[in-house]
Design a protein around this nucleic acid. Sequence first.
DNA 1: CATGAATGAGTCTTCATTCAT
DNA 2: TATGAATGAAGACTCATTCAT
Lengths: 218, 218, 218, 218
Amino acid sequence: MTQTSTKTAPPVDGRVSRAQRLREERRSQVLRTARLLFAERGYHQTSINDIIVAADIARGTFYLYFESKRAIFAELLDSYFVTLVQAVKRIEVGDGSAAPMEQMLDNVRRIVSVVRAERQMGLIVLRGAGGIDAEFDGRLADFYGRVAALIESGLRLGITMGLVRPCDPGLIAWCVLGSVKEVVDRVVLAEGAEVGLAANVDHLARELVEFNLRGLFR
Amino acid sequence: MTQTSTKTAPPVDGRVSRAQRLREERRSQVLRTARLLFAERGYHQTSINDIIVAADIARGTFYLYFESKRAIFAELLDSYFVTLVQAVKRIEVGDGSAAPMEQMLDNVRRIVSVVRAERQMGLIVLRGAGGIDAEFDGRLADFYGRVAALIESGLRLGITMGLVRPCDPGLIAWCVLGSVKEVVDRVVLAEGAEVGLAANVDHLARELVEFNLRGLFR
Amino acid sequence: MTQTSTKTAPPVDGRVSRAQRLREERRSQVLRTARLLFAERGYHQTSINDIIVAADIARGTFYLYFESKRAIFAELLDSYFVTLVQAVKRIEVGDGSAAPMEQMLDNVRRIVSVVRAERQMGLIVLRGAGGIDAEFDGRLADFYGRVAALIESGLRLGITMGLVRPCDPGLIAWCVLGSVKEVVDRVVLAEGAEVGLAANVDHLARELVEFNLRGLFR
Amino acid sequence: MTQTSTKTAPPVDGRVSRAQRLREERRSQVLRTARLLFAERGYHQTSINDIIVAADIARGTFYLYFESKRAIFAELLDSYFVTLVQAVKRIEVGDGSAAPMEQMLDNVRRIVSVVRAERQMGLIVLRGAGGIDAEFDGRLADFYGRVAALIESGLRLGITMGLVRPCDPGLIAWCVLGSVKEVVDRVVLAEGAEVGLAANVDHLARELVEFNLRGLFR
DNA sequence: CATGAATGAGTCTTCATTCAT
DNA sequence: TATGAATGAAGACTCATTCAT
């Protein structure tokens, strides 16, 4: 139906033809360009025209690689979700495991590093992905919901083991998630962040984790 | 310059003409309608047409009261910011003051009550105001920045007084803000929230404050 | 949803406002223009742009009056079908009725006169309405199907009454319809027709009817 | 000028090279595929993409064999016209000839058989070839014009010989043609035709010819 | 000969805003 | 003041055709 359908399966011998490689390169170059623009100006303020001009391709070429504007955005979003989720490891509690605090620190460090590596997507996910579409809103809510569920199950375990004080884990999971999101957003992604605080990731991670574990009180 | 700025100041005698009153009524009715629609479908998915149909006014009439689509949205946003800021009181520490915990609880209760009273604007501010425009993004950042600064100054005071453990107040302020925002968003604004957890505002406030003060550890 | 929705019901007093009248005029002017273009160049070769340029209206204005290109074409088609159907009267056989031949002559005369009055639509229906769309094809087939059914029932009656020779009425109805369509198409609508044969409608009608009644044999 | 016209005349020895043969095979396979698609969905709804996918050739290859979309359609059309024209034999009147009625019956039978054999082209010619293009419309008109002229000359002869009643042969030729076209279209090409009436070609031909010769009257 | 990635003119449609009445 | 018809810039997407490999 659409001309997009990329037959061109790689040769059976497993090697990838030169054309294939070029094709992939082109595709990811468009993806990169689009990511940049979406992050800078948001979904609605970025037109297909903006993308093809910035990527220096023809109008039709865009549709050779992506079905629609929504599709390229969705792809960007989904692949970022995957990257992010992979950065978060469940906190293991056991003899051979590192201290929970250390594990949490590692989680935060990994998240920060992912977000900093792909600053643009961070901006999109934390700020610009809402309000595009009912479907995208849903996807975003889904993603955060899954993360919150992960945290919640950790909390439950911690409570059972007597490590975490008794609390409403369904609620507190959102507190934890919220504090992380906000710090990542404001501190990691802030314009001048490169020079400032965020440069010291370790300090940031330690403060964040300590806040979550010990709260404000002395 | 534009016709809209014809503020038609009330007559010197202080009384407001009947026409004036009607004008104001109509204006705020349009505002209400727009708020509803923006909250339901977001900025981009709400057209001027949607608004005038729902408000039952003519297309031209809209522009008699508001300069543009942006303008009405900005107005809605700004007035909500004012309401919200008023809900947050600086934590007083002194002989005659209530316990800090109690003050924080009150802050949370007030915020929750404001947000629930104007659920629509809450949705807009927490979800839908990003990604519209560079300027709106800035406004939003500004607002949260002011709130964070407020929290930060409280933290500094707390630290000085030995109530709050030593920490990076500029960073932790964002943690606090983030946890509040997320809980308000997911728990207070969630579809079925009216029946569920959020119904018990007190429980919610207490859990949230406790998390912020004592963290997760037992 | 669309801005097309024409509220503006006429005032209760039954009179039509000046604005209403203007609106209708504008609308039918666009219809006329579109009809002309569709007839001249066919559906696919006529762009919205062609229509608005020829009608001297703005792009948006078109969509104020019509939902889409398909919609305006459908409207043109439907109203023509109505006109055409009204031109065909069932052949009455009875004491007070004119001779069947005379009634058929009148039918042909009326059809020819309708077609000549709206030459453009004739061209569209007889030549250009096929191949646009499965739906339009269906509509066209439907229309001709109804006409054929009308003829068929006439034939059955004629056979019963001994006026028409025994034959397969379902088949012969298409013969009759086909002969009429072709003559109307080639003779009435032909470019130079105005000067030639078709000028003499009476001759044409008589020949056509005679052919249908008596065939070719001497 | 165009690469396509590289007819690569066969070697003088009259034999056709293997490559030549392959070329021809491929070409006609594409023609077959295109015919199928054009018939099924019409000219405008069939894209080059549809054709190359169905024919399993590369995009560029198509243009190796055919100049353009128009060109392949034109070729299909023209070759069908030739086939059709060959099916119609002039009615011979003379001592050694069969009865005119029998000759006409044979004509109809041949036409029906051609049309049924290449149902797709029948559909295209009778329904889908109009409204594509001024030129195609002309070609179609030309073809029917030639057929009508053939019939007309037959009628003149018949009149001269006293077999056909006096009439306007230029007009009546179109009646005859119209009745044949319509029957072929609706009855022969109708979806379920294979099972229904049309199965009995002889009945159909006889009814059609009888209608043309004797008309409706008893 | 064959390929298929690239092209870009052209299409329909939307919608914030203006302005004559 | 109120109206709503008119505007036109801007947007997403299609598809016949070309051309380097």
